[in-house]
């Protein structure tokens, strides 16, 4: 019996040694980059977030928040007479008193105030700061759809702080600024870069297409709609792109062969 106790004791001590040595080694290489628990956004879903984090599921918690966001944002908050077959250009005065046109997107998202949109964005950001695509979507919706650019910039500012390596946040900040200033040409070049990436939200592709049309670059607008038809997975923006493409071809029939080639590839 005594021998067993001695063996167990030696084994225990050796194991402790291994634990401490290798933990020390791993600590030197391990860098935790998720926000602290105290920084989580307190919402009615806090218990769900905590339950998922209690077994180390930051990404899944952010995914679920994103799904909740889509369900929140996908339901129109206000009744709105809306012709589904054409997109609307809304005229309004910007902060400098100039008239400008903004695109209304007939994808049914953004038909309302959506006061919690920023909260959702922050919640995703603080659960998983590397869920870049979702954060860009929220920022884009805030800036270009609901016209709450300050909130969009607030979200992007925090996003840049938490993930400074993702430079596209800065691209979006630039896009928002140019849009506010009415500098559509600069906005166009920023958006051209943004849509190179597969996680670019469809609403930005729509803005780009509208800008191309505004500047008479109809072939480029056609290419954008063609790209959206082939790659966008959400049903509504894809259907909108199809309708816009058809409308464009009606106005400019000579683009039909190009359209056929694009859609065949």
């Amino acid at each position: 019996m005594k021998k067993t106790t001695q063996v167990s004791f030696i084994w225990l001590v050796l194991s402790l040694g291994v634990i401490f040595f290798f933990r020390w080694q791993v600590e030197a290489l391990f860098r935790w980059q998720y926000p602290r628990l105290t920084q989580l956004v307190p919402t009615p879903h806090f218990a769900t977030d905590l339950a998922l984090l209690s077994q180390g599921s930051h990404r899944l918690a952010a995914d679920i928040t994103y799904i909740q966001l889509l369900q929140y944002y996908g339901v129109p908050e206000q009744s709105h007479s809306h012709d589904d077959h054409e997109h609307h250009d809304h005229e309004h005065q910007n902060h400098k008193g100039r008239k400008e046109t903004t695109s209304g997107f007939s994808n049914h998202l953004g038909d309302g105030i959506y006061s919690q949109l920023l909260t959702y964005g922050k919640r995703i950001l603080r659960l998983d700061p590397f869920f870049n695509g979702a954060i860009l979507e929220v920022a884009g919706a805030l800036a270009f759809n609901i016209q709450r650019t300050e909130e969009a910039r607030e979200l992007l500012r925090e996003a840049i702080e938490r993930d400074p390596t993702f430079y596209r946040y800065r691209l979006y900040v630039a896009a928002i600024l140019f849009r506010q200033e009415g500098q559509d040409r600069k906005l166009l070049s920023v958006l051209e870069e943004a849509i190179q990436y597969s996680d670019c939200p469809p609403l930005l592709e729509n803005i780009l297409a509208n800008l191309y049309k505004k500047y008479g670059q109809f072939e480029d607008a056609l290419k954008v709609y063609g790209h959206m038809i082939k790659t966008v997975q959400e049903k509504n923006p894809r259907q909108d792109a199809q309708r816009n493409l058809v409308a464009l071809l009606h106005e400019h029939p000579k683009l039909v062969p190009l359209a056929e080639r694009l859609l065949q590839d």
Binding site: L12, V18, Q25, V26, F130, T165
Partner: peptide, 24 residues
């Protein structure tokens, strides 16, 4: 998904930590 993910470097050491812990 961390930028500059360095997990590959410490896989072996983490496993040794796990083995030591289980052994304890």
């Amino acid at each position: 998904s961390f930028p500059n993910f360095s997990g590959y470097q410490y896989v072996g050491k983490a496993w040794m930590y796990g083995v030591g812990y289980a052994s304890f």
